[in-house]
């Protein structure tokens, strides 16, 4: 029984309402994309949790390297002028 017969891993993303971003909700096993889509519906939207579903083969997801996360995100550290709080606005100026 140790042969691999449980299907492949898919990641599931749900859009709660039209106009909202798709968010990761979990994963599932399925053998092909039709089955993955039906399983995603049955597993993750039994209570109207979604308006749309994306499924992606887990192996197709490319993710940043957790071990050099700090240096990878370095370039944004010294650019505080990207934040609105960097700028001095005279007192009394509104709606800016």
């Amino acid at each position: 029984m140790s042969d691999e017969d449980q299907g492949i891993l898919w990641e599931v993303f749900i859009q709660v309402k039209a106009g909202r971003p798709f968010k990761h909700v979990g994963s599932l096993h399925a053998y092909d994309k039709e089955m993955a889509m039906k399983a995603a519906r049955d597993l993750y939207t039994r209570r109207n949790e979604g308006n749309g579903i994306w499924i992606v083969k887990a192996e197709n997801i490319i993710s940043s390297d957790i071990n050099d996360g700090e240096s990878f995100f370095d370039p944004s550290n010294d650019k505080i002028y990207r934040h609105p709080t960097f700028y001095k606005i005279p007192d009394g100026v509104k709606h800016i």
Binding site: M1, E4, Q6, G26, S27, L28, H29, D42, L43, R46
Partner: peptide
């Protein structure tokens, strides 16, 4: 509906357990 939920709970949890590097087949075995 309750039984269907429990099946779902099992599947969420197997997926969570699999992230620790053990395959689904192994858990069943």
């Amino acid at each position: 509906a309750k039984i269907q939920d429990e099946a779902g709970h099992g599947l969420y949890l197997y997926c969570a357990a699999e992230t620790l590097g053990i395959k689904r087949e192994q858990f069943l075995q």
